[in-house]
Design a protein around this nucleic acid. Structure first.
Lengths: 232, 232
DNA sequence: CGCTCTATTGATAAACCTCAAATACAGTGG
DNA sequence: CCACTGTATTTGAGGTTTATCAATAGAGCG
């Protein structure tokens, strides 16, 4: 029962369910399938038939898109309280991206039919989903422009700040990223190489803007980083 | 009356209105504001309060996003039969992009309230909009990956093909892009400079893949271009 | 015909990637 | 507690891609 309560809590905190009576959340919850996942597991894979969409109850997913020559781009981190793979509901397509679990995670999945029924039954759900889709378009467009117009260091700064604003906690020395984030991850997120990210972070460490270790970063001077991200 | 018929025709051909009875289109049409636009005019500008969303009846829009240092990215061309600025309906935000008219165009705009009423009255409209939003996310993600992983020439090839598939017509010597497309446009679309695009097109012209003039391109060997776009 | 905008092309420089090798670190099992 | 092993990270050197700058040529328009 504790588990159920926990999950319902994650539901009700999410903006996805704004406008839906809290007592209905149990119903929505029951009609999906719960799933526990370990670090590095993939929830769905690019090219698989898109059968379900998922709500993250706990933990985090990394959405990546793969390129032929082995390169990959991190499109987004999906924190708990967020929905992903909404495509599955509307189109008879394969997943266009891969979702990889970061740390441990717990998700609920609904298949196409169930989700369609839920959307008809709980109208705000569809509207909220459209709202989120538009948010994601905006974010992608912004990052697309940054990738076009800015140099690597500036993009890394923006990436680090974007991740920090979404998933970090204060510690004595600064603001720490909540999850394991390697140089390679940051590189894939910003369209560069792990070498360049490493050099960049080393430089910032010398300047006292950050403090970084193995797959782990603390931003010690967010203000300086913000300024740099804006001016370049 | 001829004009009305023309416009209704554009409506009914658009996938946006799938699921809505054709005889209702007149009603939807009447509740928006028609607007004729000349080449280079901007329909809305990044940073303006987002009051309306627009359906393109005729002509074409260019969606651009501007960067501080004068650079700009072309996010998308919007052909007739497509909707843009759906953000305006859902969020109290400013437009995140600028829409510039390419050639001459005719659009219909609905303000937020009208659009919300229409969506409630004609349910398929909301669902179709969500479907299109998801399509756009997919396209942006794909282009984002390409920008991360591919070199300039490959990206230019993909861009030219993407534009060709959407807006071209056959002529005796090949497939001609429907609208004026400068080297600068292609550069802004692919995240490079007009110089590099010029060099690339010159090369392809020597190879006999294209035939280009001032703001105008004919693809004479689409097959070769497709192959190049895939292999790089 | 002259004006303006677009395109071409060469030379140069900058940013960044690639490769290679060394080093640091976390986790594991003795 | 320590050595061991597999990653992650750092850093240098060198090369490639692509941007930048500059100058010229060409095309369309009044």
């Amino acid at each position: 029962m504790n588990e159920n309560l926990y999950s319902l809590d994650a539901y009700s905190r999410s903006d996805l369910f704004v406008g839906i009576a809290p007592e209905k959340l149990g119903d929505i919850f029951c009609r999906g399938h719960r799933c526990l996942l370990g670090s590095g597991e993939s929830l769905f894979h690019e090219g698989d038939p898109a059968l379900k969409c998922y709500f993250v109850l706990k933990g985090r997913l990394k959405l990546v898109k793969l390129h032929e020559q082995g390169k990959e781009a991190i499109l987004r981190y999906i924190d708990s309280g967020e929905l992903t793979a909404a495509v599955s509901v509307f189109q008879e397509k394969d997943y266009p991206v891969t979702a990889i679990v970061v740390g441990d995670a717990e998700v609920v999945g609904w298949d196409k039919d169930t989700m369609l029924k839920l959307m008809l039954e709980y109208a705000p759900l569809a509207v909220n989903m459209l709202g989120f889709a538009l948010d994601r378009i905006d974010e992608l467009q912004t990052r697309y422009l940054e990738l076009c117009a800015e140099q690597v260091e500036q993009r890394v700064a923006r990436a680090l700040l974007r991740i920090m604003r979404k998933s970090s906690h204060k510690i004595s020395t600064g603001v720490q990223i909540d999850f394991r984030l390697s140089r390679k991850d940051l590189a894939d997120y910003t369209g560069t190489t792990l070498y360049t990210v490493s050099r960049t972070l080393s430089l910032w460490e010398k300047k006292g803007w950050i403090k970084s270790g193995r797959e782990q970063i603390v931003v010690t001077n967010p203000h300086a980083l913000v300024k740099f991200a804006e001016i370049g």
